[in-house]
Write a protein that binds this DNA or RNA. Structure first.
Lengths: 253, 253
DNA sequence: CGGGAGTTTGAGCTATCTCAACGGGGGTGG
DNA sequence: CCACCCCCGTTGAGATAGCTCAAACTCCCG
């Protein structure tokens, strides 16, 4: 283990530090400062579907995702899942562990093979006292995240399923969109209808129906846990226009 | 103005510092440090229904509420309101203004006569560099708030209106509940059916129907923008029990 | 070449929204 | 002090988006 970490650290550092430097938590940090921080971190690897932590467990570690993707999910008392957010590389998750010792309010599960760093409660506390900038950045991140969550909340409270789905796909496009050969945008992630439903507070049946309708008009293309946007502008129209809808029952074009 | 501020500052300080010391943003601060911070703040007063800021306006100030109550609301493009949160004394709002210059994502409106302090972007930035503890506290506050918002999101996504209403009343009870003479808990705030509906993503009609049913069973008592919980335990049962409901159409007890 | 996970689709159901009409209390202005 | 008006609330009836359940279908994997 010791050999391993001494081997890994410098490799990851040189490769990753520059990336980290540009982003959220380490805004305004010098390279050597980031390296110092990473010295305190422990690398973690997870296979697909493995959990970083479970809802209700003692919150010990904050994670910085380096590669892969993580979904943060909450379970209702009845066992229904709700996807609270998708974590992409260079983002942090498990923030509740950062300063206070409590329980994780949600679970974090790998949707791809993942590499991450993890930091203990005590170390974060100490680091933030030494680097106020880090605390400020963390604050900033949470402000931003609250903002996003508020938007989703408003959508959920006021919009119909079709528009919520459109909004969600657009968000996913921004974060995980990859341009395909015909100009379509492929969502580079495993994404079942069930997953989508859990993100927008709906059922896989309804999601399937809506996507079928969209597919019939060549706006999207769906497959087994795959999805491409053929006509993002149309999806935007659905998301924004109040009086617009695929109108699932209308005559075919 | 100058006379005014010199007159007000010490008065408010001596009276308020101890309160602030115990709470959120100033955890771990010494009295004299809080006083120093408040020197940089400007007092603000608002009448009922006045706005501290509007959604979309340039985010210039972060506010610390001293007295009164504020509701933070988002407007949909169609003009529908959603109440994102209620701010009670010694809480902060307008956090988005703290570090980055952006737009307020929501509006803040006084529901009672309010006193508050406001701090500019630049000052907060400087203060947080001097007092890392302040940044850490702010981070902590936002983590907590995200947690609450996630819970509400999950409720909205998975629960029926009646249970969402129950959860919301329980939350309000904790924050604004005052024990009445007969052991009932009075919600010490102006609270119309419309407001409640905007908090839980429903309509005033549905809320009215549910509360009527509850009132019929002596669980609550409603009036013009008033509400008391006569039997909080029953409301808790509704909130938690999966198979429980007032069953609006059932025979009277 | 099963088997299973993910998906599609139909049919019926129901919680909730919408619309409309009426009720009632309290603040305000005469 | 009274009356009016307005805002808030109630209640009914009808419409509907989306959920539930059930059944069949399809791809991928071993």
């Amino acid at each position: 283990m010791k050999d391993n970490s001494e081997l890994l650290m410098p490799v990851i550092a040189t490769e990753t530090v520059e990336k980290l430097k540009e982003t959220s938590l380490f805004q305004g940090f010098a390279s050597h400062e980031i390296e110092t921080v990473l010295q305190e971190a422990r690398p973690v690897y997870k296979e697909v579907d493995e959990f970083f932590f479970h809802q209700g467990a003692a919150a010990q570690h904050l994670f910085i995702l380096l590669g892969g993707q993580v979904k943060v999910i909450q379970l209702t008392p009845e066992g229904q899942q709700v996807v609270m957010r998708l974590v992409n590389p260079i983002e942090i998750f498990g923030c509740v562990a950062a300063l206070s010792k409590g329980e994780y309010p949600a679970s974090a599960q790998a949707t791809k093979e993942c590499q991450a760093f993890c930091l203990t409660h005590e170390r974060i506390h100490r680091l933030m006292e030494v680097y106020p900038r880090m605390a400020m950045n963390a604050f900033q991140i949470m402000v931003q995240r609250t903002h996003t969550l508020q938007d989703r909340y408003r959508e959920l409270a006021t919009e119909c399923v079709e528009r919520r789905l459109a909004h969600t796909l657009l968000r996913l496009m921004q974060q995980n969109g990859v341009s395909g050969e015909q100009g379509e945008i492929i969502l580079d992630m495993p994404l079942s209808k069930q997953n989508l439903a859990e993100m927008i507070g709906s059922t896989l049946y309804t999601v399937s129906r809506i996507l079928s309708a969209w597919e019939g008009r060549q706006w999207v293309q769906t497959g087994r846990a795959k999805l491409s946007l053929l006509d993002p502008q149309m999806i935007e129209k659905i998301a924004e226009a109040e009086a617009f809808s695929a109108d699932l029952k209308s005559t075919p074009i």
